[in-house]
């Protein structure tokens, strides 16, 4: 499977990663190569193989339902690009 300009622009929009006009062709080629690798891997027989959820052979530890965190919003907002009235500020979003 190979990707063209349209797909790259679409992926660029989804990932919110800007791809400059002159770079589109190169990115398309690189992504196509990656997809070819996947195509090769698809040839392997994976019937009866449980999809791997995690590379470690371990199970999730659970924590008790207890509140352990305290209010740290001042500290956290000190390193935010913008904040006001205890809210983080971002460019306006209108649905």
């Amino acid at each position: 499977m190979s990707l063209g300009k349209t797909e790259v622009e679409y992926i660029s929009r989804l990932t919110q990663i800007e791809v400059r006009e002159e770079a589109v062709e190169g990115v398309a080629e690189k992504l196509s190569n990656i997809l070819e690798l996947f195509a090769q891997m698809e040839a392997a027989d994976t019937k009866d193989v449980l999809p791997m959820a995690h590379p470690l052979d371990a199970v999730q530890r659970l924590r008790p339902d207890v509140v352990t965190e305290v209010d740290q919003h001042k500290k956290l907002q000190a390193i935010a690009p913008a904040a006001a009235d205890a809210h983080y500020l971002v460019p306006q979003v209108i649905e």
């Binding site: 913008a82 809210h87 500020l89 971002v90 460019p91 306006q92």
Partner: peptide
């Protein structure tokens, strides 16, 4: 939660 109208032209976020 997004909060609108806090600062003109910006959206506030309460997490």
């Amino acid at each position: 939660k997004s909060v609108h109208g806090l600062v003109p032209g910006q959206t506030g976020v309460d997490l």
